[in-house]
Design a protein around this nucleic acid. Sequence first.
DNA 1: ACAGCCATGTAACTCGTTACATGATTAC
DNA 2: GTAATCATGTAACGAGTTACATGGCTGT
Lengths: 182, 182
Amino acid sequence: MSQGLPVTSYALLGLLSFGDDLTGYELKQRADRTLRFYWVAPAMSQVYSELRRLTAAGLVEATGDAASTRYRISGQGRVELRDWMQGQPAGFPSLKHPVALKLLMSHMVEDSATIQMLEEYLTTLRANLADLREVRRSLVGRDAPGEAFHKPALVAEWGLAYYRSEQRIARRTLALLRQSFT
Amino acid sequence: MSQGLPVTSYALLGLLSFGDDLTGYELKQRADRTLRFYWVAPAMSQVYSELRRLTAAGLVEATGDAASTRYRISGQGRVELRDWMQGQPAGFPSLKHPVALKLLMSHMVEDSATIQMLEEYLTTLRANLADLREVRRSLVGRDAPGEAFHKPALVAEWGLAYYRSEQRIARRTLALLRQSFT
DNA sequence: ACAGCCATGTAACTCGTTACATGATTAC
DNA sequence: GTAATCATGTAACGAGTTACATGGCTGT
């Protein structure tokens, strides 16, 4: 039953599938640490409303008082999550890349502005890369095949590969622009 | 004036900044050919509503009858687009990667299911790569520095680099899973 | 005492999607 | 003549954001 929850709902349910029970606040923190790199960083208010939805559907169970509620995935939640994973195909990633977007129409501005944009992108890229490296590091020791964080480690590696690829292509594009910008 | 249009609005305005005037229908086709790889493929209905918004703001001009209207960017539109490009920083890309998402919680299912998911991803990746290569090919001859499609060509290269990186990491992950899957 | 974090929520709004609906033109 | 494509729109809805609001708890 309860077919067709939004993907973000399953994503949060997935974050609860590692065994521990969390408050909405803690769940948001976990999302910021992991989900944000390849899905979204949902707003605080959305975390709470999704948790209400999941509770209503019986996929998570709430314990504690109104001032501090802990949520844990239910048996039915595990079943539903499994079904969703194996049901529909994953679907193709969708990218919102404002840097590429502005580059596309960069004939409207001076090359120096585009060069500056790419430099700024490389800076924020470095920062994100550092964050993700830190996440990856925190999994060392529990990341062997079969261990609890094997799959999260694979995802972190995936993200690192993505960021490194972005670094390469941004640098290459920057070099090309600087070359023709006399 | 008219500060703070949604980015998709500027994106469509940008597609109109290459000099030709298009119908809503044609604009949608152009978006499907270019924008979709690194921004979005807006629904037909949204293309029309954005065009109405842009017209109301004086950034595009409409000509023709109600049965077939052509839109062209206005002088003010060019100014506004330039301002937007140079104004706020581009912002960091946001990725919605359902494959990575499912991989994260793949401890919930058998490895064989995850392996199958990655194989399917590689298939659709191949198809998208072919599409984008076709786009890149169509720009050959007008893609030198200073020429009309230099920047679009750079963006296409960027996209190709991204897809190739995805291919590499997907294959690597697949290999790791197959290895530990006895 | 006060700052900062923990913790939870409501309300308004907008972007973007899907479904629905219509009709003209072109190709076979 | 009929199917596909061109062309334009409306209506309903849902996901997700921002702004607002409240209050407890902890460290200095």
